[in-house]
Amino acid sequence: MNIFRLTGDLSHLAAIIILLLKIWKTRSCAGISGKSQILFALVFTTRYLDLLTSFISFYNTIMKLIYIGCAYATVYLIYMKFKATYDGNHDSFRLEFLVVPVGGLACLVNHDFSFLEILWTFSIYLESVAILPQLFMISKTGEAETITTHYLFFLGLYRALYLFNWIWRFYFEGFFDMIAIVAGVVQTILYCDFFYLYVTKVLKGKKLSLPA
């Protein structure tokens, strides 16, 4: 554990909680891509199956349970409880365009051709692109609520902090995981355009809106 890893995890947790609270407090999931949230639930489910096979630490187990629980709670709020507010027409990204290629890649490029390892690899690749339906939705509507941009900021910050974590671990522990690093770099790059808009607009008190 190092400071980048810890702040990365906390940033990830902050993003998840911000989204849940936003939906709960406003009683609405307008502007939120349910498809991205389904992908994140799938990511956590396929990655954390090792909860059943190996114990790493109390911290590790608790965080995994919180992430999975929150992911399913978010999907429940969007598709069940506040379904009437879900903006399905603008959430038109085709999930199979992500899930199928990512599944194929996970079978081809992995550390070990075993069931759990392939699911872990699938989850790593899928996470790197899971935000695309949300970004696609924002580009379609041309705007995002400020609270939604805070969610995206913390979600992007989490993976950026993990990059520093991996640099740290390489130098001080000799540890590196090429699959996680490459996917993490891709994931972080996807947020760069958003980070730019967040700093130049949202942090200056303006709403995030894209030019027509």
Binding site: T53, S54, I56, M63, Y67, E117, D177, M178
Partner: peptide, 10 residues
Amino acid sequence: LKDEVGHDEL
């Protein structure tokens, strides 16, 4: 390169 007991990162 892979942890023997699974992946410690989240």
